[in-house]
Design a protein around this nucleic acid. Structure first.
Lengths: 107, 107
DNA sequence: ATTTATCATCGTAATATTGCAATATATAAA
DNA sequence: TTTATATATTGCAATATTACGATGATAAAT
């Protein structure tokens, strides 16, 4: 089907899955790494850096924005993307909580 | 296309994406949580617990096994799944490393 | 030996994701 | 105003994912 039965899972489970889904692509990982590596708020040299077409990058940025992992500030005709540190830290906390809580006690 | 251009990304980026992809589904999150909650190595009560058909669960378990996040021990006609703590901890370390390394220094 | 129970695999339908060309939009420069 | 530059959106093709019924394989129970 390709459709996930979100209704049968709780909010936390769906939230976790959504976060993981946004991160589940090497292009988006590379974009995040590239954005963070820059001293200043570097914009879409991302297209040059990553080997993907401009619309593709634009779409990936949109997905990263969908969970507020990055923010884009308009600067003239350019857009300056940077990581949203608050959300970044928040998500790291959520994931660690999941990993610490979900641990086997068998085998 | 639906096909990710893995060739243009490095091993670490692809590995990260693969890990995230395996976790990017609420059913698999729920399965992990359920397995970890049990005192003993509970097997496919998972099917009863989660509201999905047995082949679906089996497929999800296969994906979790694909990165060694869980291991399945055969016990008669049952299979006993549990979390692979070594790998679990390893992945948590990898993710934290990513989150700590990839942080913005702008905006 | 047959039946039953547990789990895996196969095949398939429905939907999602990835990527890009074409196009739209918006701002800056000329 | 026209042109160039930067980014977003649309539409589409190719592939991936999710889910399940049918079927297979295996082991315990009868």
């Amino acid at each position: 089907m390709g459709i996930t039965k979100t209704q049968i899972f709780n909010v936390d489970q769906n939230q976790m899955a959504t976060i993981f889904k946004v991160l589940a692509n090497p292009a988006r990982i590379a974009i995040l790494e590239y954005i963070s590596k820059q001293d200043a708020c570097i914009c879409n040299d991302i297209v040059d850096e990553i080997g993907l077409a401009q619309p593709t990058i634009s779409q990936h940025l949109k997905e990263l924005k969908s969970i507020n992992l990055i923010k884009g500030e308009i600067d003239g005709k350019k857009v300056c993307y940077c990581i949203n540190l608050d959300k970044w830290t928040d998500i790291q906390r959520i994931l660690n909580n999941f990993f610490n809580t979900t641990k086997s006690n068998c085998c």
